[in-house]
Design a protein around this nucleic acid. Structure first.
Lengths: 146, 146
DNA sequence: ATTAATGCAAAGCTTTTGCATCTTC
DNA sequence: GAAGATGCAAAAGCTTTGCATTAAT
């Protein structure tokens, strides 16, 4: 839609620069697509949306932009057991539930993991990153339908 | 190794038959490979090991055998955020931690999820299946090395 | 006999990589 | 002008599929 300079996006590009990256048209287009959406976009989704602003954008560029934004700490990708992974801005932290049957994605707050994280840390020395992989299972609707 | 009829494998093939499947040489070879190992084998690993007993086995056959064994409820596969997925017999239930850095796999008991599962069920109506996706993060060694 | 399962080869799909060129800082 | 980023095209990696053949029940 608009291309007005926006506080969220400014902060993002500050971090991109801080991590040694440059601010380019493809990055602007991908960030705009991420910011405009209610998240949960695959790389292919993002390539399509970025192409609105930047018709010639290459899929490989989208992947590289996303990797770069992850390095800068502004994007996260989530594995969902189906593939492809989806991406979102790393604003407020939250984890995801993904239904094995219908693919529905439910956001859940990080604090649900507090207990489990502490237990796993204590017993195994392992630090879980609950954002990085979705919890798979069955949503309410699909459980009823069986 | 040996090819003696074994209680575990007999039970497995009962279930295969019960689910409408047939007991074939490739299934025997894959099940033997799964049973012989300490788990965490990829499809490719299994293809290699099954080939010891059955030299000509095709990769696509391994995938189809595994899908069939999952339908029969005797095998599970686990997504680990790296790909490829790994497979194991569904004996005692356990979930997995996978280190993002070194790929180490740690088995953890299901009961760690009791609280989280109940909370998610209550709040979202969603039933998590903790076996199906590994929890990703950093193992102790990789956290120290940074 | 039926019907599932196999082998082979080819294709599918997501993601990565090589390399020459262009842009940003 | 130096280093990063891009586009294009090709490749890689894992997995699935089509189809004729074989084998299990």
């Amino acid at each position: 839609v608009g291309n007005a300079p926006n506080a969220l996006e400014s902060r993002i590009f500050q971090r991109v620069r801080a991590s040694g990256g440059r601010v380019t048209a493809p990055k602007r287009a991908v960030v705009a697509a991420l910011a405009a959406s209610d998240r949960h976009l695959t790389a292919e989704d993002l390539a399509e949306r970025a192409a609105d602003a930047l018709p010639g954008i290459a899929p490989s560029t989208v992947y590289r932009v996303l990797a770069n934004l992850e390095d800068a700490g502004v994007v996260e990708h989530v594995h969902n057991g189906r593939e492809p992974a989806f991406y979102h801005l790393r604003d407020r932290g939250h984890a995801h539930l993904v239904c094995n049957r219908c693919g529905a994605i439910i956001d859940i707050p990080d604090d649900l993991f507090t207990g489990l994280r502490a237990t796993i840390r204590r017993r195994y020395g392992f630090t879980i990153e609950p954002h990085h992989a979705a919890l798979l299972g069955r949503c309410a609707a699909c459980r009823e339908t069986h």
